[in-house]
Amino acid sequence: MVLTSRGLSRRLIWIFLFTSLAMPLIWLVYLAYSNQLGADPAKELVDELGQWAIRFLILTLCASTFSRRFNIKFLLQHRRMLGLYALLYAVLHLLAVSTFILGWRVDLLIRELTDRPYIMLGMAGLLLLIPLGITSTKGWQKKLGRKWTTLHKLIYPAAMLALLHLVLLIRASILEAIIYALLISLLLIERLFRKRKPKKR
C-alpha cells in the first residue's frame, strides 16, 4: 500500500485517537496494579468503567452531530472507533462487576439479573450495543445499505438505558447524572430538528 501524505496524516490521527481513547483504561489498570484504587478497588473500577462507557457513548453521538452541523468530516471518519470504545468500556464494566463484585457466583449473578431493575436496564443497553459493534465494519455497512443507518439508531435507546441505569444508582448526588442527561437530551433533540427540516421544504 502506498501511503500518500494525506493517508499518512490520517493514519497518524487514527493512532493518536486510538491511544488516547485507551488512556482511561490504561490509567485504571495502572491504578489497580499499583494498589491506588483505595480500600474497595472493585467498586472504584466498576464505577469508572461504567462512567467511561457513558462518556464514550456521548462522544459517539457528538461525532455525528458535529460532523453534520459544522461539516467536520474527520469526526465522522472516526465515529466507529468511538462507538467501539464505548462498547469495550461497557463490556469491561460488566466483566468487572461479574468478576470483582460477584466473584462469578452464578446464584448471585442470576438474582442480580432478575431482581434489579437498574441491572436489567444497563444490561439491555449493553445488549443493544452488541449488534452495532458487530455490524460496524465497512463490509456490513455495504451489505445492509440503508438498513444499516436504521439499525444504528439503536444507539439512542442504548444511551437512554445507560443513563437510566446510572440515575437508578444515585445515592446522594445528582450532579453527574444531570450533566450526562443534559448532554444526551441536547444531542437527541438536535436530531429531531435535523429530521424535520427536509419535510417542511
Binding site: 480500600a39 474497595d40 478497588p41 472493585a42 467498586k43 466473584g103 431482581d115 437508578l168
Partner: peptide, 17 residues
C-alpha cells in the same frame, strides 16, 4: 437495588475480592 446476602471485607483486592 442490590443484594445484602454477601459483603466485601475490606481492604479487598481485585483478584481476592
Amino acid at each position: 437495588r442490590w443484594s445484602q446476602a454477601t459483603e466485601r471485607r475490606l481492604p479487598s483486592s481485585l483478584f481476592n475480592p
